[in-house]
């Protein structure tokens, strides 16, 4: 986990800034959706680095915050549509956590648009590609993350 999220942000001019986005995708729906987008040769931005989790309910808020700390400019959480969770209720729980986390980030001055959540089913390859595009564009617009990032001044 730690290793894969360790990405360096290159400080470029805003217009050609390419954000690093970490995607936590659930094994049963979103990850399969991403797979479908790939096999169907749909174009979507390469900025998303995917980490597969068994369920969106597995995502501890510290995963999200740690990703931002280690250099991600944004985080996308993907789960099954409400009612479709492989474990019945994981995505419902994730939804609550996400709502609170977003508010909290906003409150301390971190743009909440950097953390997004989406429902993508295994058949929604198109939706997945669209969401990634939308999120990437939005975060590109926001620029590199200024807060939270580890300085590693040593």
């Amino acid at each position: 986990m730690m290793q894969t999220t360790q990405v360096e942000v290159k400080k470029k001019m805003k217009k050609d800034f390419e954000p690093n986005i970490i995607g936590f995708l659930c094994n049963w729906c979103s990850y399969a959706g991403a797979d479908l987008a790939g096999t169907s040769r749909m174009q979507y931005p390469p900025n998303l680095k995917v980490i597969r989790v068994m369920c969106s309910g597995r995502i501890n808020p510290i995963f999200v915050i740690n990703a931002l700390q280690q250099g991600a400019d944004g985080v996308l959480i993907g789960g099954c549509h409400p009612g479709d969770c492989h474990y019945e209720r994981g995505n419902y729980l994730a939804r609550r956590r996400y709502a609170i986390l977003r508010e909290l980030l906003d409150y301390v001055g971190i743009d909440p648009r950097r953390v997004r959540m989406t429902w993508v089913s295994a058949s929604e390859g198109k939706k997945f590609a669209d969401v990634v595009k939308e999120v990437t564009d939005e975060i590109r617009e926001l620029g590199p993350i200024q807060q939270l990032k580890r300085e590693n001044t040593w």
Binding site: Q3, Q6, E8, Q70, N152, W154
Partner: peptide, 11 residues
């Protein structure tokens, strides 16, 4: 020890 992928520091 604190690390990134390729370097680290002892703190």
């Amino acid at each position: 020890d604190e690390t990134t992928l390729d370097k680290g520091a002892r703190i």
